[in-house]
């Protein structure tokens, strides 16, 4: 059955005579919508806000536009901001600390005490809340922590005479809400780091007579370090910029850099100050990212 090439059917495709677009043109056509959109919605706004941070006041009407560096001196001119910044850093520190401790052991427990389908299911269960609305989860804590809330109810049912232990509208409440929000992140990054540890290493160590705390300190913790560090960065950064959690759970004491910045935009209308504070915070964030970029790349690679 010879196939005669001379009888080959002609291609119907009209492309034969038409020249295709040059590759750079089609590549550009594919990229322009996305990057145009990002420019309009993210990069131009960030540039504008950066320019704003050098203005004396929010431009309104015919008032002349005057450039200044004074917004960046806010921490000197308004010393109360130093206290707020300190509170924000403390909040970031405690949240990260509790996430690290709880998350590391949760990841360790998952890796060492579960396997197969059970482990997979548990991991999904741990991560699922992370993809649900943060606002709703913070609101959930008000139900638990408020005076006469679920926590009080649970304690009174055991010990009827106890007073209220509800601590809504305190800094502790804010930290609890934030830990709840970001714990899954830490469990995931630690899990990724720990799951690669060969079981035989641990067995070898214990066969050599190592106690469990020696194994923990000398083997498990160092090996989980990349996960702990990347988890910490990924938690610390959004936490110091949070404003919704402190407002809902902290009430009047929930004053953080996040809420101060929000106030500048929604209440005080001092947009240049808000912009300067935002960029100061962004500089801190970028500094943290830059410091740990190597670890982050390794720690988050799934």
């Amino acid at each position: 059955m010879p196939l005669d090439p001379a009888n080959s059917t002609q291609l119907r495709e009209p492309g034969g005579s038409r020249k295709p677009l040059p590759p750079w043109a089609s590549t550009a056509a594919l990229l322009v919508p996305t990057y145009g959109w990002l420019t309009l919605a993210v990069f131009l706004p960030l540039c504008t806000m950066f320019a704003f941070s050098f203005l004396t006041a929010t431009p309104m009407g015919k008032a002349p536009i005057v450039f200044t560096f004074k917004q960046y001196r806010a921490f000197i001119d308004q010393p109360y901001l130093l206290g707020v910044a300190w509170q924000s850093l403390l909040m970031g520190f405690w949240t990260t600390f509790f996430c690290a401790v709880l998350g590391f052991f949760a990841a360790l427990a998952l890796v060492r005490a579960t396997e197969g389908k059970v482990r997979e299911t548990l991991l999904i269960l741990v991560l699922l809340p992370f993809w649900t609305n943060g606002l709703v989860r913070v609101f959930s804590w008000t139900m638990v922590l408020r005076e006469g809330g679920f926590l009080d109810y649970a304690i009174h049912s055991v010990w009827p005479g106890a007073g209220s232990v509800g601590f809504l509208y305190t800094r502790q409440a804010v930290v609890v809400g934030l830990v709840h929000g970001y714990l899954p992140y830490m469990i995931l990054t630690c899990y990724i780091a720990l799951v690669t540890i060969d079981n035989t290493i641990v067995e070898a160590a214990s066969s050599l007579g190592a106690r469990w705390w020696t194994i923990l300190w000398k083997i498990l913790l160092p090996m989980a370090a990349p996960g702990l560090i990347s988890g910490s960065v990924l938690i610390f950064v959004p936490v110091i910029g949070s404003f919704m959690e402190p407002r809902i759970l902290g009430g009047r004491v929930g004053v953080t850099m996040g809420t101060v910045i929000e106030d500048q935009f929604t209440q005080a209308f001092n947009w240049p100050l808000g912009a300067a504070l935002s960029f100061t915070m962004l500089a801190v964030v970028l500094g943290i990212f830059a410091t740990f970029s190597g670890v982050l790349r390794r720690g988050t690679a799934l």
Partner: peptide, 9 residues
Amino acid sequence: TRMPVWARN
């Protein structure tokens, strides 16, 4: 030489 792949048969 200048004909795209899909038209070359």
